[in-house]
Design a protein around this nucleic acid. Sequence first.
DNA 1: ATCGTTAATCGTAGATAAGCGATAAAGGAA
DNA 2: TTCCTTTATCGCTTATCTACGATTAACGAT
Lengths: 108, 108
Amino acid sequence: MAKRSTKKPCDSMPVKLKADPTADDFAKLAWAIAHPARVQIVRLLIGREACVCGEIVDCLPLAQSTVSQHLKILKESGLIQGEVDGPKVCYCINPKRLEQLKSFVAGL
Amino acid sequence: MAKRSTKKPCDSMPVKLKADPTADDFAKLAWAIAHPARVQIVRLLIGREACVCGEIVDCLPLAQSTVSQHLKILKESGLIQGEVDGPKVCYCINPKRLEQLKSFVAGL
DNA sequence: ATCGTTAATCGTAGATAAGCGATAAAGGAA
DNA sequence: TTCCTTTATCGCTTATCTACGATTAACGAT
């Protein structure tokens, strides 16, 4: 499978790849779902379209503060959004950002 | 956008989600590409189908030992494979594993 | 104003990641 | 054998993640 001496070196890109903003954003999105709890949160939100933070906490075997941190990470990636509703906060998926992630991966 | 009191609590899943092996594997794959350098390495390998480690080092603004660590992480995720070729090591994408990642994300 | 609920933040501890230089291991060449 | 090349690993430092309990902040209700 592996090509050996027949393969030329980095002809097309002999220079160092600069910090690729695309790769940075890709990695940022991948990082957001690079933890099982965050995968589950994202799936949960996709499945029910919106969910109050407390419900998410009830669905995970994690402390409230820990879930809150995961939600913060997901929010910072842009994958989810939180909307204050009185004393509660309702989280939902950001469809545009999700599509961005999908196209990144599909484009590999 | 956010549903409020009209949305019922976790009716469909009131119990804690157990450690979902699917989510674990998903997170593992996402983790592998959750770093810009690893995104670039994966793209590089997809684009040229195989590449000697030294070439990858030449393409990235990182020390050889650092690149080697990233390659190790990618290898552990199953996304890439390394094949020894004399003193060199030729890396290539594992298509099956890549497809797995794609279907995970597409299935979100 | 006070209480109760909800969620974010603080502080802390332990684990892990990221980066590098230096060294080791393995193979080819002289 | 002795070099030279190539890659993995070690040792180390710094920074970040993960998790938790406790506290704070914000809101509704009484």
